[in-house]
Computed example of a mutant assay.
Amino acid sequence: MGAAQNVLNLKMSTIVIVAQIIVALSIIVVWVFRFDNIVKEFKQYGLPDLVRTIVGATKIALATLLIAGIWCPSLVVIPALLMAFLMLCAQVAHIKVRNPWHKYLPSLFLLFLSLFIAAAYTGVITV
């Protein structure tokens, strides 16, 4: 039973690391390579450029910490929870402007992944 449990733990740990990479790369792609779309969305939400800049810098910093957390796990919980909070804020912004449901999906997916990462690192779920 010990060897089987080790294989299961390795698979679950890999899933959590993959989740960290997905969240981090998604943030980088959207906030660096698709920034023109971000500018349009924040205008639609009625938010000032300063808020957009702060949110973007925060998300990129948190994404960096999630990647660094692969090698230094103590870095992961707070960035994962903060990322989840920012994704929850994105959901509220989508609701506020009554975007179509498909616009909610990326931030909803990243919200759940961020919560999964935080839960795994805090031991709320066993991986």
Rank of each mutant, 00 (worst) to 15 (best):
M1Y: 11
M1E: 14
A3H: 15
A4W: 12
Q5G: 10
Q5R: 10
N6K: 14
V7C: 14
N9Y: 11
L10W: 13
L10D: 11
K11C: 14
K11L: 12
K11N: 14
T14G: 15
T14E: 10
T14C: 11
I15T: 12
V18M: 07
A19H: 03
Q20I: 01
I21D: 14
V23C: 04
A24K: 06
L25A: 14
S26I: 13
S26A: 14
V29C: 15
V30P: 10
W31H: 15
W31T: 12
V32A: 15
F33M: 13
F33Y: 11
R34P: 10
F35K: 13
D36C: 10
E41H: 09
F42D: 04
F42I: 08
F42K: 04
K43H: 13
K43D: 14
Q44S: 13
L47P: 05
L47Q: 09
D49Q: 13
L50S: 09
L50M: 15
L50A: 14
V51K: 07
V51G: 07
V51A: 10
R52H: 06
R52C: 06
R52F: 02
T53L: 10
T53R: 15
I54Q: 04
I54H: 04
G56S: 00
G56N: 01
A57T: 10
A57D: 09
A57P: 09
T58H: 04
K59S: 08
K59F: 00
I60Y: 04
L62N: 02
T64L: 11
L65S: 02
I67F: 07
I67T: 05
A68E: 08
A68F: 11
G69W: 02
G69A: 03
G69I: 01
I70V: 05
P73D: 04
P73K: 05
S74G: 02
S74R: 08
V76T: 03
V76M: 04
I78C: 03
L81I: 00
M83E: 01
M83R: 00
M83I: 03
A84P: 02
F85R: 01
F85K: 00
F85P: 01
L86F: 06
C89Y: 07
C89K: 07
A90G: 07
Q91C: 06
Q91P: 02
V92E: 04
V92K: 03
H94L: 00
H94E: 05
H94M: 00
I95H: 09
I95C: 08
K96H: 12
V97M: 05
R98H: 15
N99W: 05
P100E: 08
P100H: 07
W101G: 15
H102I: 12
Y104C: 15
Y104Q: 12
Y104A: 15
L105M: 11
L108F: 11
L108N: 11
F109C: 12
L110W: 03
F112A: 10
L113W: 00
L115T: 02
F116L: 08
A118K: 01
A118M: 02
A119M: 08
A119V: 04
A119S: 09
A120F: 00
A120H: 00
A120I: 04
Y121T: 01
T122G: 04
T122E: 05
T122F: 00
I125P: 03
I125N: 02
T126L: 09
T126D: 13
T126K: 08
